[in-house]
Design a protein around this nucleic acid. Structure first.
Lengths: 214, 214
DNA sequence: ACAGCAACATACGGCGTAGTAGGTTGCGAG
DNA sequence: CTCGCAACCTACTACGCCGTATGTTGCTGT
């Protein structure tokens, strides 16, 4: 315990380098095959080692999966909450940046963030039933994430920049189109193409909240 | 072969009633648990019978899964293509109806259509490697589906109703937000609430394609 | 120099599940 | 009446995979 972080998140800590390597490999496997189709041996193979290493740091498949999702959501929040709450910036500008950041994140090769958004389908996964505590934390983080978007929309409505639509539905709609990006986007495109796509989603989101012209 | 349909789709045929019951039960299971977590015995249980019945109609798990997806995509196309190509109706009106139809479909309890859209993640599923023919057909149907949306957007741009945006990205964005609905929508809501949500997505999609006012 | 622990590797048990092989029932035709 | 086939059911096998139990290695404090 060399650092004084809240829950051993955010800062690896030099002694936890091995654990982080496992986490990264697991994220890569989960994003490729999903939860059930990912095997412990597969994660170990991606690490170039064996299961012993994985089980040294985690007690089971469910635990490592939830840790990947937890880290992913944590990183996402760390990315967008500062933007959402930045004072002196108009709501539509903040929302634009949030959408762009999230879009860029979805187009990166493989990371815990993508696992976090792609695998919300963990309903009816009996393996996670015993990990209620971590599951609750993840759900709370997801709520905070959606709330960040919803609040910025609400502020935009309040100051007249946006139409008076349902902020909750607006947030779900925006995040849905963004979270769906990994379904069709194939990495390997140039950085300019990625930027163009991110811009598109940013501009589209803003237009969907503003009054139609003639 | 009492009917003359193209590929034994669209019309059950009286002799195929048992097969359709299997298909329906399989769709329900796949939408609940996903591909790998769905077991043949689970499908049989949902039918109130045993595996023998399932294996009587299908040769394996991959085959029944692909058939569910194929039927789902087929039904979706049957729903939206007539709207997309209806003559005498302006593009924005057609697009509005298409979005609303798709949204309503995503909020129904359990059906092959939801399996079709939710489980596009069948990349890296080695079990489907031997079914290239059916997979190709599904991919072709998916392309046609997206093209229907893209074409209507293009027509709207051509006649000046929509802004000059990238039609392909616009289609992907719209379909993404719609396909994400099952992730947060929990059935059991009233019909009026469902209609309100469908209206929201329809109006939002149109606004995102039209010029900003103010 | 030695104790002890972290950081792995190896080998194995046991269970869930896909697929198979061989019955059984019931109906329709001749 | 019975032949035959569709429509199932039952019992079994084979295999993949999670988790565990038991090494082995290397560093580190004293």
């Amino acid at each position: 315990m060399t650092d004084a972080t809240s829950k051993r998140l955010s800062r690896p800590g030099p002694a936890e380098a091995g654990r982080d390597a496992v986490l990264e490999a697991a994220a890569e496997e989960f994003v490729k095959h999903g939860f059930t189709a990912t095997s412990m041996d597969g994660i170990a193979d991606a690490l170039g080692s064996t299961k012993g290493r994985v089980y040294h740091y985690y007690r089971g498949k469910a635990e490592i999966f939830l840790d990947v999702v937890l880290h992913g959501m944590h990183d996402l929040l760390l990315m967008i909450e500062p933007i959402a709450t930045e004072s002196g910036v108009p709501a539509r500008e903040r929302l634009s940046r949030m959408v762009r950041s999230h879009a860029l994140c979805m187009m990166e090769a493989s990371n815990p963030q993508r696992v976090a958004v792609q695998l919300v389908q963990y309903r009816g996964m009996p393996e996670l039933a015993t990990h209620t505590e971590t599951t609750e934390r993840i759900i709370e983080l997801r709520r905070r994430y959606e709330r960040a978007f919803r609040d910025v929309v609400s502020e935009g409505i309040a100051d007249g920049a946006f139409l008076d639509v349902d902020p909750s539905l607006a947030a779900k709609s925006m995040l849905g189109s963004l979270n769906w990006i990994p379904m069709w986007f194939r990495p390997g495109r140039g950085a300019d193409e990625v930027a163009r796509i991110a811009d598109f989603f940013s501009e589209t989101a803003l237009r969907s909240l503003e009054a139609e012209g003639a």
